[in-house]
């Protein structure tokens, strides 16, 4: 029981720390690395919530693929040196901070109604545990078969969109990059 609480608080602090540092960093590469730190801490929380499969997906897909894609783009555009100068914004920084703080308070007010929610034990069948690959896959291919198949179309559209968007127009300064 003590260990569970300790792991939760350690992972929570690391996740929030990584998120805040990601926003504060000037260098985009450091930003990506802090986001990876935050995601790994969140994956620990997933495992603690008995979501083994989704937690490993978070590390494999998010940290392994999506954020590496971010790193690729940063390297490709050679943004490491670029200084994003802060121009005079019509809204002061304090207002932005207060807005997000208010948003947090609002969310906490909403979530307070779940404080009476009972805690229950895992459903464990003979062959599997809650959140293992087998029961999640079973849901994915029976109850959620239709949305699951639709994601393949979504990914296809995303691939086509990305290729068209990033494609160089014919005759537009070729051989520059």
């Amino acid at each position: 029981m003590m260990l569970e609480t300790a792991v939760f608080y350690a992972a929570a602090v690391i996740a929030v720390f990584g998120a805040i540092m990601m926003v504060l960093q000037r260098n985009p590469v450091a930003s990506v690395l802090y986001l990876i730190l935050s995601l790994v801490a969140q994956a620990v929380l997933y495992v603690q919530l008995a979501a083994m499969f989704v937690g490993s997906l978070l590390i494999i897909i998010y940290a392994g693929a999506i954020l590496v894609l971010f790193l690729f783009v940063i390297m490709l555009l050679n943004l490491r040196g670029e200084k994003i100068e802060q121009e005079k914004s019509p809204i002061p920084t304090a207002t932005k901070l207060i807005l997000s703080l208010l948003f947090f308070v609002e969310l906490v007010m909403i979530f307070r109604q779940f404080s009476t929610m009972p805690t229950s034990e895992y459903i464990t069948d003979a062959g599997w545990q809650f959140g293992d690959v087998v029961p999640v896959a079973e849901l994915l291919f029976t109850k959620y078969l239709y949305p699951f198949e639709l994601t393949s179309i979504l990914l296809l559209v995303a691939i086509v969109g990305a290729v068209i968007m990033a494609k160089r127009e014919k005759g537009e300064d070729e051989g520059e990059m």
Partner: peptide, 24 residues
């Protein structure tokens, strides 16, 4: 986890797919 329903895991799986498409 607290409601003991695994459907949430499937939803998170779909959200991860959407996030990948969005990133691309």
């Amino acid at each position: 986890r607290y409601l003991n329903i695994m459907d949430g895991h499937v939803i998170v799986f779909l959200v991860l797919t959407v996030a990948a498409a969005e990133a691309a």
